[in-house]
Amino acid sequence: MKKAVKFSLFMLLAFSLVLAACGNNKSGGTTSTGSEGEGGKTGSDIKIGMVTDTGGVNDKSFNQTSWEALQALEKEQGIKVQYLQSTGEADYQPNLNKFVKGGYDLTWGIGFALEKALGEIATQNPDSNFAIIDAAVDAPNVESVLFSENEGAFLVGVIAGKMTKTNKIGFVGGAESPTIKKFEIGFKAGIEAVNPKAEFTALYASGFDKPDEGKAAASTLYNDGVDIIFQAAGGTGNGVFNEAQDRKGQGVWVIGVDKDQSIDFGNEITLTSMIKRVDVAIKTVSQQVIDGTFKGGTTTVLGLKEDGVGIADTSSANVPQEVLDEVQSYKEKIVSGEITVPTVK
């Protein structure tokens, strides 16, 4: 028995040495940690933090986009950035509080789920600055940023209406919330503008972290003869892409959301993506803090006019030029106010 103990101790030692070697290699190369403050030695001691919603920082969607935008700012301006992930809705308040207590110059709340928590923390700490994406918080120290998702969705609706072969188009949303409804309604309006005969079906999952439901919804739609699905479902949308991948070569398409998803899922199934420039919003408001021009108390709405929404630059890979030209002309009409894209049915 003693031998066995000795042997296992020896193995443990050997194992940990090997692991230690791995550890050293890793810590030298990658930079995937939350705090990278030591990197920027250039003067500025501005600190900006962000609190994710329950999707987490690697959601391939707006939490990730926001964090990447902050990281870019860190590189350019030498500020200190930091994020905290929320595992449940109870985490929002303490996480926001950590940044306040840490003396951060600006704290971002990412997503409408943080609306109430951020509102309360902002009232309790009137001397700290906050900003929130996708929700309007009425407090003098909060800058709110909203997007006209319906306008961006209208453009991809035009593409879908022009490109469908089966004349059936689908939509998968993450939750029946007002924000996601805006995607659906704009998308539908875009289809109807160019192809009034197309059949349109919308399905909703029960959350943004349900790829299995996304896959099931996509499967239902594709089986019904739908050939293009627009997903606005965060992590759930990954399931839609997954289903399309399984049917590769059967002429099925997915329209991505928030960022250029052809980068993650490839051009064979990603027709185009509706971009929501969360990164622009993050950079603009954060820059105000860095420059000392941050005011707060206002709500900014970013639409096509402000380049807050749009379609991916890589769309030309799958979308023919004449369709893109049409998209461009619709874009101009929306910007000039000739067309108003509905937000509610």
Binding site: G34, T87, N95
Partner: peptide, 16 residues
Amino acid sequence: LTYGASGMSFEAGVPS
């Protein structure tokens, strides 16, 4: 442990 996890990620940069 669960509450302290966010503190760990905030102060020491360790993913929660």
